[in-house]
Computed example of a mutant assay.
Amino acid sequence: MEYGRRRQLLRARGRNVAWVPPLLLLVGIVLLDLNTTERFRIITWIVLVPGTAAAICGVWTTAVFALLAVVTYVVVDSAWPGQYQAGLGDFVLVALAGTLAVVACAVRLRKERQTLHIQDIAETTRRTVLRPLPPRWAGLEHAGVYLAADVEARVGGDFYDIQPGLHGTRLFVGDVQGKGLGAVETAAALLGTFREAGYHEKDLATVADRLETRMLRHRRHTTALGRDDGDRFATAVLIGFPEDSPETIEVVNFGHEAPLAVGPRGVRELPSGDGLPLGFGELGGGLPPVHRVPFAADETLLLVTDGVTEARDRRGGFYPLADELGPAVAAGAGPADPWLLVRTIRDGVLRHCDGRLVDDTTVFAVRRIRQAAGEDDQDDEGGRLRF
């Protein structure tokens, strides 16, 4: 996207009107100076005009206002009798202020370009780590939102992905400890392993083992590079949708927030984090077990990171997730729409903390696509899921 189309400028009916405030200020100073007595000469205030333009206009517009301020100063000051004129000293002040305003405007625009470039890099990184997913993918319908605590960076350590494979569809949601590029790099390493293992491996326990191994390898590598990542870990939930059991799912929880099954019969909590986070498996004597739990066709799976459950209001109160879900789930209304759930939780969290996120926040909802009789799943090909 071109820089000129992305700048935050004052616009009215699609047209740039950033030049209006400095022009009104110029006219106001002139009129006030000409309609007051010699005891209230304010023509020198015209130095504010190029300064205002520098804050909201482009370089050439600022230069025009700087020149216009100098010319206007000379004309208006000359209209007064000699003994009341501001004189050469103020003229130099106005000219110098205009010059500095042009320089300041150029510096501001350069910083804005650099900021937008950094944001473009962050957005590209985010889309690489959290690859875009079709709304209906691998037999699942889903919706997700990711809110970075650092609004400018727009990228952090939360992650999620869906991977269709040879043995069913797998879902991976998690949160890397820490912030910054180190957390992003760790999330990318885990997602890369998940996409390969989730596609090829038959047993979900094997996928979990591959993820644990990848986390340990990544930590050893970053430590060897001299970085302080030796104790980094990640909480995560690994979920499998077995092809041979459409009424159940498999869950491996690495110390993450418990997934919620939301349906017409209410909200129920699936197995909580009975295992240690990824990277700490050796401390707990092994990996967390694989739980096979019922999951009805009319239920929607809701997963959130601790940015949701630990969001606080001004009084320090945590976000009441269970209370927010109640109005969104009407008894007997059928399966909860993933986007409705995600939107409800997102808006509720932002409202609860007044938009001041202290941690990266991810909300992800998914449900099986229910096919009509005789209708083939568009994601199936010869009994195997495409990718």
Rank of each mutant, 00 (worst) to 15 (best):
P289D: 10
H256W: 05
P242S: 13
F254L: 07
G281M: 11
V252M: 03
L260E: 02
G266V: 09
V251S: 04
R265M: 07
L276R: 11
R268H: 12
F280R: 13
F280L: 15
G263H: 02
G273Y: 00
P246V: 13
P288I: 10
P289C: 07
R265V: 05
F280Q: 10
R265F: 01
V251D: 00
D274H: 02
G284D: 06
G279K: 00
P289M: 07
E250Y: 04
F254V: 07
A258M: 06
G285Y: 05
R268S: 08
G286T: 13
P246F: 11
G286M: 11
V252G: 00
E257H: 09
D244V: 11
I249V: 15
P288S: 12
G281L: 11
P242I: 14
G255P: 00
E247S: 15
L283K: 14
P289V: 10
H256K: 09
G263L: 06
G281S: 15
E269P: 04
E243P: 05
F241A: 09
L276Q: 03
P264R: 11
P289K: 05
V267K: 11
P271C: 06
L270F: 01
E250D: 15
V290F: 03
A258T: 05
L270P: 00
P277N: 07
A258I: 06
D274N: 04
E243H: 12
P242T: 14
H256T: 09
E282W: 14
S245K: 08
G279H: 01
V262D: 01
L278N: 02
G285A: 09
L287Q: 12
P264C: 07
G281A: 15
G281P: 05
G285S: 07
E247T: 15
L260I: 08
P271K: 08
L278R: 02
G284T: 12
H291A: 12
D274V: 05
P264D: 02
G275W: 02
G266K: 04
N253L: 07
F241H: 09
T248R: 15
G285W: 05
P271W: 03
L276P: 03
G275Q: 09
L283W: 08
L260M: 13
P246C: 11
G266R: 05
P264S: 08
G255K: 04
R265H: 08
V267C: 08
G281T: 08
S272Q: 10
G279R: 00
P288M: 12
F280C: 11
